[in-house]
Structures are given as C-alpha cells and as structure tokens.
Amino acid sequence: MLKRTYDWFIDAADKPYALWIMAAVSFAESSFFPIPPDVMLLPMSLARPKKAWWFATVCTIASVAGGVVGYAIGALLYDSVGHWLITIYGLSDKVETFRASYAEWGAVIILLKGLTPIPYKLVTITSGFAGYNIWLFILCSIVARGGRFFIVAVLLNQYGDVIRAELEKRLGTWVTIGAIVLVLGFYAAFKLV
C-alpha cells in the first residue's frame, strides 16, 4: 500500500492539477490544516527534479499567503476561530507565554519555527493575536518558509536521482522517519511553545 501511495504521488507530479493541490495544501497548512506541504513537495520534486525550484517557489508563495490568513485569524478572530484552533492542538494555556515572548523575540521566533517541523499555523495565529507587525511577519515568513522549501529544492535538484533511488529502496524506513519527525514537531510545539 505504501508503494502504491508513493507511486501515485510520483505519477501525479505530471498532472496539471498537482501544482494546484500542492499550493492548496501549503496555503492551508499555514493557517489551519495539520498536514505539511512536504507530502507533495518531496514526491513531485523527486519525479521532476528540474522543476524543484518552481515547486519550492509555489510552496513559499502559498505558505506565506496562508500565513497571512492565519495572522488574520489571530488578529481578528482569535476569540472564536483562533482560540478554537489553538485549543484543538492543546496549547491554549501556553498562548500567553508565547505571546509575551513576541515583544522581545518575534522575528527570531518566526524565522526559527518557520524552518522546523513545528506546525507553522501556531506561529501565524499567535503573530496576529500578539499584534506583531504584519510587514515584518510577512518578510520573516518569506525567509523562513522559502528557506525550508528551497533547501528541499536544492537537495532534490542536485541529488534527486540518488535520493529517489535510496528512497525507493528503503521506502518504509524513510516514511517511518518522516512520520517520527512530524510527530516530534507536534510534540515540540506542545512542549516548547
């Protein structure tokens, strides 16, 4: 089943709708969706390493746009939607601490958390809630999210064939590692925020 799913993602990379789905996932992940865009960015870039730069660009633009929606949820809708999303992730008792740290470390928080597997939606909603400067938030988001996606693009553009061969040889192991990293990202969000 894992191999079939992997093959579907690889085959879907050539479909005209794949880029739109990846952009939608990237957009949604920055404001409310729990699945990171890497689930599409990686296989699409493996299937077409020469387009990895374009895929990273689309992910970055969509992620930053979704981050602005997350910011708006925090700024305008925190008492209803924003609080509900934070509660779903079990972080409502940590928001005030996180918010207070923005006064001193806002840009560093956005940059560091944007590069990690920690759910970025927590940063976007809290940035809006904390009233962080929207333009600085957008700039930091471009750097952080672009950095994350372009690191993938550089690696897959340069070493895509080698990575694909290794991935296909040990698919189960790499999917397990990816799942562990995702779970650790959520765990870190719960413990470090």
Rank of each mutant, 00 (worst) to 15 (best):
V68M: 08
K94N: 07
G147I: 00
T124K: 10
R4W: 07
S101I: 15
L139N: 00
K51T: 13
S31L: 13
W135Y: 12
Y120R: 04
G67Q: 02
G131N: 06
I86N: 04
D161Y: 10
S92H: 11
A189W: 02
L41N: 02
I21P: 01
V68H: 04
D161K: 13
L2Q: 11
F150P: 05
I35C: 01
A12L: 11
R48H: 09
G82E: 02
F150I: 15
W135C: 01
P117G: 06
G114S: 04
V64W: 07
S31P: 10
W84I: 11
A18R: 13
A179Q: 11
P43M: 01
L155V: 05
A72N: 01
R164K: 15
A75R: 07
A65I: 09
I61C: 03
S45F: 09
D93G: 09
F32R: 10
G131S: 07
Y102V: 11
V154S: 07
L156Y: 07
V64A: 06
A47G: 09
T97H: 10
W84R: 10
L46K: 09
R170E: 09
L192Y: 12
T5Y: 13
I177V: 15
K191M: 13
L115W: 09
T116F: 00
W8K: 10
A56V: 12
L19Q: 05
K50W: 09
M40C: 04
G82T: 04
I180K: 08
E168Q: 12
H83I: 15
P43F: 00
A52V: 10
F186E: 14
M22N: 01
V152Y: 15
L41C: 04
G67E: 07
A130S: 14
D79A: 14
G147N: 03
T126G: 03
F32Y: 12
F55Q: 01
W135R: 10
L182W: 14
W105V: 00
K94C: 00
I110M: 02
R48G: 03
G114H: 05
C140R: 10
M40L: 05
A12D: 11
T57G: 12
G114W: 08
W53R: 15
G146I: 05
Y187N: 02
L77V: 05
G66Y: 04
L155S: 10
L155A: 11
A153H: 13
A12E: 13
S30P: 02
V154Q: 06
N157K: 13
V68G: 00
L115P: 05
L171Q: 06
L91H: 14
K113D: 01
S31T: 09
G185H: 04
L122Q: 00
F9N: 11
I73M: 08
Y17C: 12
T126E: 02
T97N: 14
Q158C: 03
P37R: 05
A153V: 14
L184W: 09
G114N: 03
K169I: 12
F32E: 07
W105S: 12
S45W: 08
Y89A: 06
D7N: 13
I61D: 08
L171A: 08
V69K: 02
